Simulated assay, not measured.
Amino acid sequence: MAVETGRTSGAGVRLLILVLVAALLGTAAVLYTTRAADRATERDRARPGAPATRAGAVSLREPGRLLFRNLAWGPARDRIASVPLAAASGPRTTGPRDCLRFHAAAGTGICLRSKGGVVPRYEAVLLDARLTPVRHFAVPGVPTRARVSPSGRLVAWTVFVSGDSYAGGTFSTRTAVYDTRTGTLHPSLEAFTVFKDGRRHRAADHNFWGVTFAADDNTFYATLATGGRTYLVEGDLARRTLRTVHENAECPSLSPDGTRVAFKKRVLGRPADAPWRLTVLDLRTGAETALAERTSVDDQALWLDGRTLLYALPGDFGADLWSVPVDGGGSPRRVVVSGTSPAVVG
């Protein structure tokens, strides 16, 4: 009995030593990881041109602010950032929400985000004025466009169901519109009736993307691709109809007064992977104005005001936000380093 007790006590001591060693190794690993993360954060913050960020409250109702997806390297990457419109290049405040695409208006936000996992999954998250999730929608592909109507009532999003670029022309999209007041979800614009040149148009290759809303919460514009061409279409949400109004127009953005549409126009002779020129269409006259930005812009531009557009171009940390006058004059100006998906809080 004494021998057996001795063996048990010896085994217990060895087990205790193993537990203590494992605990010490675990503590050391945690300390190493934490210090490495701290050093990485310090290194990222020290990179030339990296903007200063701080965590804090971000509101969709604080006037005079520019919100966007923060792309600066560090723990706040992909979070929604807020800066004063009058000092957009200065320090930014980042909220708790991670988004791949984002837009907001009148206290309503839409965030397209990754859900993680071995197999990538994505969702559209409706946000309130404090960036608190209100409702979640599963989406069938990679997020690419998002918009909220001026009143905050309607939201729209587009995802790539197959393919991941508008440049090559071989892709499939799915665009949904949600009415926050009635709770009605239109899961795909492909269910709407299309009129082309005044006649009903049926085709298996209809693709829609890039919704932009008018102030009446019924009229909207979007891109239709069919037969190897793209069209600006005007939508009627109540009637579930779409009609073509202009050819060779992608990713429209309606001006605050509802009279003009900014869009991407494909230009012959440009490279296949960079074919676009930012252009503004007068909806009344049909006149086009090519803008001073000559770099191909693969983005849905945003009207900063009635005279200026905001848009993203590739940058050192992913993308930067630029501005350009809408009258065709002036020259492009970088507004925000390491940012994309802007929204203006009036």
Results as ranks from 00 to 15, higher is better:
99 C>H: 04
278 L>K: 05
175 T>N: 02
31 L>C: 09
195 F>V: 01
62 E>A: 12
3 V>F: 10
100 L>F: 11
326 V>E: 03
23 A>C: 11
126 L>M: 09
11 A>S: 09
216 D>N: 13
138 A>C: 02
250 E>R: 15
209 W>I: 04
284 R>P: 00
58 V>L: 09
321 L>R: 00
190 E>I: 04
204 A>E: 15
260 R>Q: 12
90 G>Q: 04
196 K>Q: 13
53 T>D: 11
266 R>A: 10
162 S>N: 06
98 D>K: 14
231 Y>A: 08
223 T>F: 02
75 P>K: 12
330 G>D: 09
202 R>M: 09
307 R>S: 14
282 D>C: 05
105 A>S: 13
86 A>L: 09
193 T>L: 13
72 A>E: 03
146 A>N: 06
191 A>R: 06
236 D>I: 01
242 L>G: 01
288 E>M: 07
257 D>L: 07
156 A>N: 03
88 A>P: 14
175 T>C: 08
104 A>L: 04
194 V>Q: 02
193 T>W: 00
305 D>V: 05
182 T>R: 09
205 D>Q: 07
101 R>W: 09
207 N>Y: 01
208 F>S: 05
19 V>F: 13
212 T>M: 05
17 I>K: 09
202 R>S: 15
82 S>P: 06
296 S>A: 11
281 L>W: 06
329 G>P: 01
27 T>S: 14
83 V>N: 07
119 V>C: 03
339 G>D: 05
88 A>I: 00
299 D>N: 07
340 T>C: 07
68 F>Y: 15
134 V>D: 04
66 L>S: 08
116 G>Y: 07
104 A>G: 06
96 P>T: 12
194 V>R: 08
63 P>A: 08
283 L>R: 12
345 V>F: 09
303 W>S: 00
47 R>Q: 14
255 S>Y: 03
147 R>V: 04
219 T>M: 02
34 T>W: 11
45 R>C: 05
58 V>I: 11
66 L>F: 08
62 E>T: 15
5 T>A: 14
9 S>I: 15
328 G>A: 06
130 R>P: 05
223 T>R: 01
55 A>V: 14
44 D>H: 15
23 A>L: 14
86 A>M: 08
101 R>S: 08
263 F>M: 10
62 E>P: 02
166 Y>W: 13
